[in-house]
Design a protein around this nucleic acid. Structure first.
Length: 674
DNA sequence: ATGCATCTAAACATAG
DNA sequence: ACTATGTTTAGATGCA
């Protein structure tokens, strides 16, 4: 009786839910198919990256020199006449250097990127570190700018009063211009990189990537830091936005659209999109054009001010300059905007650079000509996407951007802009499934796992572990190797942001697993009853199937496996994106150490089986598997997932230590809590 | 095609 | 009566 009735209901429910969920797993990740034919311009792209760095350095040097000169001049001649210009250019100088920065990427965009999980926690950390380093440079530059601006303004005022145009000013302007040009070039390059990045689905960092000099520093970084950084950025942004109605203040938000034209040309450029090649050229071209055609200001086009959110109509360049000076003068707001933009750009640029390096390495390894890698990847993607089958197709439809069903979740307050590329592209990808095979012996360090844990703690991404594995882990982590059901729940919510939602569902799953698996033994206790793990039983499971955490294994495998195939070129990023975990450098994370080690055990065990038994891991659809692939896909399961990893912000609060008993349920997030 | 593992959903039982 | 905890069944999905 029950069965029957149950069956019916189930069928209904499961049909719907499963359907969605099933689709989810598939999502595994997508790679951007076209997005990047990144294969295309490996060499060039690399060049671009390098160039960007070089230019940055150059710009910095120039800035310093100029600054010194200015200082000298000031000392000698007072504010008034800096006369030095050396060979600097002759263009007119827009007042605010800051403006020079093409604001292509908004914080929202950045968020999106982050949310999309394009980057693994490690990557983010590394990037953050790098960014910080760069920020110093940027600050220096900004200081320089400020001085220049102040000087200029002063001069302007003086002259206006005097009614004449001082040469000095022009000279200063010249210097500024030179500097600005440098900066502009650099920024353009960065933007290009960003764009290409986006197209690629946002880079990823190769696991073994040697290169990043900043890595060491990165190790110290943790998601929290990232979050903070982000907060800072966003904070600035919001702070500015709120106060003024000013168009400029809106920039960050609207900037995308407003600047779209300018940027679009660069970014959307078919060439650019195809690969990074253009990115290199474009910037140069533009810079040249600027030099030659002073009127082609990055913030000016089609008779409109392209300052993010502005769009003021300026009939001619001079009027534009006036507008710039008046409306977008160097002030806190502009500075902040600039700063934000710089951070975003830098971060993305760094990411891109890394990804390019990786790509290069891959290409080299594969003996592929740098010129046309795209061909291979595309086909693959297509194929893969096709193979994905229904689930993928079902899920894939562009569903991600908006929070699916339950937007209520406060967790990720951050805006989710139109997330884009990544998600969509990701959906299309489908290779994940196919890759299992041989080479997955990649050693996984506990540190990596720990890192991942940290990531999952903050990012609402489904962990690539089965419920059984997680439960076991929770129990093993406890001092007495035993936990009450409620404690297990708490562990889940504490360790995984993902489990702070849809409590009814996963809690039911937890209970189900506890009862179902023999490895979990219920022991009567003073408190009532506690659950323990029968390691022997647990181990028994593995042999049969990697049950331990098939999904996990798969994920790992896949992530590493990706590298091999040519297609990998494209998917590499995806893989990483989707599977932040097992890749990259390990950044120790004490708090999660235990978990990490435990998980590792499982992984290793599973891996063994996988290797020996071919690959038994059944990725299945365990929620966890689907997980990293980008929540986007999972959304069906959990509506809120769409929000993405960015939940960083939200999660920032809970630190590892947070009391075990703390219940997330209070958070609105867990809507349905029982 | 089949079996297995996993997940999700749901019904039901029991104890507090 | 309600809730938390457990148990069990069933459908769905993916993989080997």
């Amino acid at each position: 009786m029950m069965q029957e009735s149950g069956t019916e209901t189930k069928s209904n429910g499961s049909a719907i839910q499963n359907g969605s969920s099933g689709g989810n797993h598939l999502l595994e990740c997508g790679a951007l198919r076209e997005g990047r034919s990144n294969g295309e311009a490996p060499a060039t792209e690399l060049g671009a990256a390098d160039l960007a760095h070089v230019q940055q350095q150059q710009a910095l040097q120039v800035a310093r020199q100029l600054l010194q000169q200015q200082q000298q001049q000031q000392q000698v001649s007072g504010l008034k006449s800096p006369k030095r210009n050396d060979k600097q250019p002759t263009l007119q100088v827009p007042m605010s250097v800051a403006m020079m920065t093409p604001q292509v990427i908004t914080p929202q965009q950045m968020q999106q990127i982050l949310q999309q999980q394009v980057l693994s926690p490690q990557q983010l950390q590394v990037l953050l570190q790098q960014q910080q380093a760069l920020m110093l440079q940027q600050q220096q530059l900004q200081e320089f700018y400020k001085k220049q601006q102040e000087q200029l303004q002063l001069q302007l005022l003086q002259q206006q009063h005097a009614g004449k145009q001082p040469k000095e000013q022009q000279q200063v302007a010249t210097q500024q211009l030179a500097f600005q040009q440098q900066l502009l070039q650099m920024q353009q390059l960065q933007q290009q990189h960003l764009l290409s990045l986006q197209r690629q689905g946002l880079l990823t960092i190769p696991p073994g990537q040697p290169a990043l000099p900043l890595q060491p520093l990165a190790q110290g970084m943790i998601p929290t830091e990232l979050q903070q950084l982000w907060k800072e950025v966003t904070g600035v942004h919001t702070a500015e936005e709120a106060p003024s109605n000013n168009p400029s203040s809106l920039d960050l938000t609207t900037c995308v659209s407003s600047s779209a034209p300018a940027k679009a040309s660069l970014v959307m450029n078919p060439h650019a999109s195809t690969n990074g090649q253009l990115s290199v050229h474009t910037p140069k071209r533009e810079s040249l054009s600027h030099e030659e055609h002073p009127h082609s200001h990055p913030l000016y086009g089609h008779g409109v001010c392209k300052w993010p959110g502005c769009e003021a109509v300026c009939e001619d360049f001079p009027s534009f300059l006036k507008h710039l000076n008046s409306e977008h003068a160097l002030d806190d707001r502009s500075t902040a905007q600039c700063r934000v933009q710089m951070q975003v750009v830098q971060q993305l640029e760094l990411q891109l650079a890394k990804d390019k390096e990786r790509l290069q390495a891959m290409m080299t390894h594969l003996h592929v000509k740098s010129t046309e890698p795209k061909a291979a990847p595309q086909p693959l993607n297509l194929v893969s996407s096709v193979t994905l089958s229904k689930s993928a197709s079902e899920a894939s439809p562009q569903s991600l951007p908006h929070t699916p069903t339950t937007p209520t979740a406060p967790l990720t307050p951050v805006t989710q802009g139109p997330s884009v590329i990544t998600t969509t592209s990701m959906h299309t990808v489908g290779p994940i499934r196919r890759r299992y095979s041989d080479k997955y012996n990649v050693p996984i360090s506990s540190a990596d796992i720990a890192q991942n844990q940290e990531f999952y703690k903050n990012a609402e991404v489904r962990p690539p572990f089965t419920y059984a594995s997680l439960i076991r882990q929770a129990i093993l982590e406890s001092p007495e190797k035993q936990l009450t059901l409620n404690e297990i729940y708490n562990w889940f919510t504490r360790m995984f942001a993902y489990f702070r939602r849809n409590a009814a569902t996963w809690k039911n799953a937890v209970r189900h697993n506890l009862s179902l698996h023999k490895c979990f033994v219920r022991v009567e206790n003073v408190k009532g009853a506690v659950w323990t793990v029968d390691e022997v039983e647990f181990q028994k499971r593995r042999p049969q199937k990697i049950s331990g955490n098939p999904s996990l294994i798969k994920n790992m495998q896949s992530s590493h496996a990706y590298c091999t195939p040519l297609n990998a070129a494209l998917q590499a990023s995806m893989a990483e994106n989707s599977i932040p975990l097992y890749t990259t450098a390990s950044m120790g994370n004490p708090a999660l150490g235990n978990l990490a080690s435990a998980m590792r055990e499982e992984l290793n065990g599973a891996m063994e089986h996988a290797n020996s038994n071919e690959s038994d891991s059944s990725p299945g659809r365990s929620p966890m598997q689907a997980v990293h692939p980008v929540h986007v896909k999972e959304e069906p399961l959990d509506p809120e997932e769409a929000e993405g990893p960015l939940s960083l912000v939200t999660t920032a609060n809970h630190s590892p230590d947070f009391d075990q008993d703390r219940d997330y349920e209070d958070e609105p997030v867990t809507e349905d809590m029982e």
